[in-house]
Design a binder for these strands. Structure first.
Lengths: 262, 262
DNA sequence: CGAAGGCTTGATTCAGATCAATTCTTGTGG
DNA sequence: CCACAAGAATTGATCTGAATCAAGCCTTCG
């Protein structure tokens, strides 16, 4: 058991939370990273496909994901499920810097999950943002990224073809995991079932399967077990219009932007 | 000309900004409402289908919509357009309470639009939230509503049928407009083209047309000119699972929630 | 080893897209 | 005030991407 937990750690969150930290894509100073570590609560584990929070719950206890994947989700009355966004290792579920935040959707685990309570951090950043500038910036950056991905999710589902959706989502996963050191070159572990992908992509599980087959046949991706490899990353990104959020956020320098955007 | 502008005002924002204000669904005290009014910049008008801001632009000048409708939007390289969310009279485009916010998508007008610069308000609330509690609460509430509707948008597009999507969006419009006093009973003015609806709903314009026809035939809605009337509002809401955001946000009192949510 | 869940594949259906007119509105200039 | 042009809405015909249904086959894990 403790053995399995160790394996999870190694697999999904190797060194990222060890010494000096990268947090939300921001490198923390020694001072703030040790502060962060001190705020972390005990590790909790959750089984796959478990409800963690419900719509309307108070978001006073954000949780940092050590390992495993989770999501926000809404259900229709007949059981149809829509996954709104995914949470990957290093993400914080239910992060909000408002006074009395409320969950706007359900939170659920998609795999076995290890999380740490990070409510202390929330309080810290909420009450004294100026004293912890890096942590504050990191939290804000995470929120902005979350919204960026929500907008991507809408575009994917609303106007892209199945093969574009899958490619786009895989690129997003790769990009996000690489920030936490969870990629190896263009490969990463994708621990989701095809059904969990389908419910995020607005497709049926069967069609996700066929779409993977298509992408494999075209030598754009390789999938073996849970390992996904993006062959031709640039071609993929071109094909589905994928863009890194940081291309926008760090674009202080470019008044002349690409003609594609609006 | 000035005549047309007056007509617009009467049509889309009659009394809401006149005396003591309701702002973001919050009733302002006399003090804060007059403060708000003093912060408002001059009225600007914009033609329909005009780009107001581009991805990556600094969001330092949020604009309050006096009349007309707008949206956030992303384009794919081949011209496909996805509308991410709509902005209605009384909404603020580009509201962010972060230090250096950036537009995560393009902003565009969908109709003739009248807006007022509200950057002063942003600064006020950003720097001294405690001195203007109502305005601060209102801004926050607007942000939360915006995210709530983004999540609804995902569920609509990802997992609902065309007729559910249309019904759900109409209910959202009605609910939002009623907060600004822009409904008459179950009727409201919908100044969008079917194409603008289609690009928000992830459908083709032709299919939006047919879906309206279906809803009319079933006596669920009536459409004449730009006026939409929701007959059978409860039946519609039931059919598409529409819920008011405030049902969640003000649910402090209900630890036992409906079984539908998650 | 066996059961259950997940993956894969084939056959069929269907919701919604696309293409192509036609008609209706609306705003404009004379 | 009227005529007209441009943009919307509407409708029909056809096509297609993705859903659904139904097996069978792998994995995984107790």
């Amino acid at each position: 058991m403790s053995n399995v937990m160790k394996a999870d750690l190694d697999r999904y969150a190797p060194a990222a939370f060890g010494g000096v930290l990268t947090f939300g894509g921001i490198n923390l100073s020694r001072a703030e990273s040790s502060l962060l570590v001190r705020q972390l609560g005990a590790i909790q584990t959750h089984r796959p496909n478990v409800r963690l929070m419900s719509e309307g719950d108070a978001l006073d206890r954000p949780r940092l994901i050590r390992s495993g994947w989770a999501c926000r989700v809404r259900f229709l009355s007949d059981g149809r499920r829509q996954i709104l966004n995914y949470y990957l290792p290093g993400d914080i579920m239910g992060l909000s810097l408002e006074p009395d935040p409320v969950a706007l959707a359900g939170y659920a685990s998609l795999t076995r999950l290890m999380t740490m309570d990070i409510g202390q951090l929330r309080t810290l950043v909420l009450d004294h943002p100026d004293e912890y500038p890096e942590l504050t910036a990191a939290c804000r950056k995470m929120k902005v990224h979350e919204e960026y991905y929500l907008l991507s999710q809408i575009t994917r589902i609303g106007r892209q073809k199945a093969y574009e959706r899958v490619a786009h989502l895989l690129l997003e996963f790769h990009s996000r995991l690489s920030r936490t050191g969870l990629t190896e070159g263009s490969s990463f572990q994708l621990p989701l079932t095809q059904e969990a992908l389908a419910d995020g992509l607005g497709l049926s599980a069967v069609h996700v399967n066929r779409t993977f087959k298509l992408l494999k046949r075209k030598n754009l991706v390789r999938v073996e077990r849970a390992t996904v490899t993006l062959l031709e990353r640039d071609a993929l990104a071109e094909m589905c219009g994928f863009r890194e959020p940081d291309d926008l956020l760090e674009a202080d320098t470019t008044p002349e932007r690409a003609a594609v955007s609006f």
